Simulated assay, not measured.
Amino acid sequence: MSESTPLRLTDSHGRVATDLRISLTDRCNLRCTYCMPAEGLPWLPKDEVLTDGELVRLAGIGVEHLGIRTIRLTGGEPLLRAGLEALVAELATLRTPSGDKPGLALTTNGIGLADRADALVAAGLDRLNVSLDTLDPETFKTLTRRDRLADVLAGIDAAVASGLAPVKINAVLMRGINDHEAPGLVAWAGEKGVQLRFIEQMPLDAQHGWRRSEMVTADEIHAKLSGRFDLVEDPVDRVTRGAAPAELFRVGSTPQRVGIIAAVTRPFCGACDRVRLTSDGQLRTCLFSREESDLRGPLRAGVSDREIAERWVIAVRGKLPGHGIDDPTFLQPDRPMSAIGG
């Protein structure tokens, strides 16, 4: 492969990766029951975590040489990354070969966001997702093992006030815990002017306790909402959805839209355009991958951008056709969600 050969992240099934998810840290200040045990997890040693310079270089290779058009920063909890605003500002200087700035997004639990939303927007952040599963303080404590609901709600208010639009709220319903709150969450989202998205619980918990039989399915979520709201499939979304994971519905005759992400029961793997970089520099072609490709080692060994790009291309070429959750031989990835990034 010559230096002049254009590179693209195309897999053997014809999909092209244009969306890069970067985990900034495996650390988190919550202990959500569907993610990690109460005592937490062993965190990565600091010297194994990519530096800001390494992250920006890898992101730059993706944007400038491999067709990456959007970057989403995740965790663990990305707000725990020291100097996040400066890192966002550096990423905002990247340009595609046509001169476009890549879209920059952040997924957070919202703790600490109240004091930082404006600074993140000023640094170049374009979009924001906040995880929120309940509006009940006691249920929040049960699910997250922390009494921080007020902090999350304050962070959402600050995000809306900062001008980010739409602010998206990701909610996971747990049977017998918060699944009865679905209609109330939709009503709250309409009042706040945020876009709520329900996500089927996925097998990414560190305890490997996920059971499909206990999962609240997309059909159940739709039925719960339809008992109170008139949900109308969004005709624009049906045409333009592309690789977006959420199926969107308009709430009655209002402009409000609610999304349902059926990652398990109606997988959208055939349109997947994502590739993931863990905080320790491992490339993952799927959220559920059990294999990773090391980019940190070559990066620290001093190899060229072109060679790193070619390694990246080879890794994506081997991407599997789907996550395989329905396969009887399916095994959860060794890393939990907090160490992979959403």
Rank of each mutant, 00 (worst) to 15 (best):
L7C: 04
L9G: 01
T18A: 06
L20Q: 07
R31W: 11
T33I: 15
C35E: 02
T51R: 14
E54S: 09
V56F: 07
G60L: 05
I61H: 09
T70I: 05
I71V: 15
R72F: 03
R72E: 02
A82T: 14
G83D: 06
V88Y: 00
A89N: 02
T93A: 04
R95W: 03
K101P: 12
G103M: 13
A105Y: 04
L106I: 11
T107Q: 01
L113T: 00
G124N: 02
L128W: 00
S131D: 00
T134Q: 00
E138S: 14
R146I: 08
D151Y: 01
S162C: 10
S162Y: 09
L164A: 07
L164Y: 10
P166F: 06
K168R: 08
R175M: 09
A187Q: 15
V194R: 13
P203C: 09
W210Q: 06
R212N: 12
R212S: 11
M215W: 05
T217M: 01
L225S: 02
D230Q: 13
D234L: 02
P235F: 03
V236Q: 13
D237G: 14
T240M: 13
A244P: 01
L248K: 08
R250L: 07
P255C: 04
G259R: 00
F268W: 14
A271L: 12
V275I: 15
D280G: 08
Q282P: 07
T285L: 07
D294I: 08
L295V: 06
L299W: 04
R311V: 11
V316W: 14
V316M: 15
L320D: 14
H323R: 13
F330E: 02
L331H: 11
D334P: 03
I340T: 09
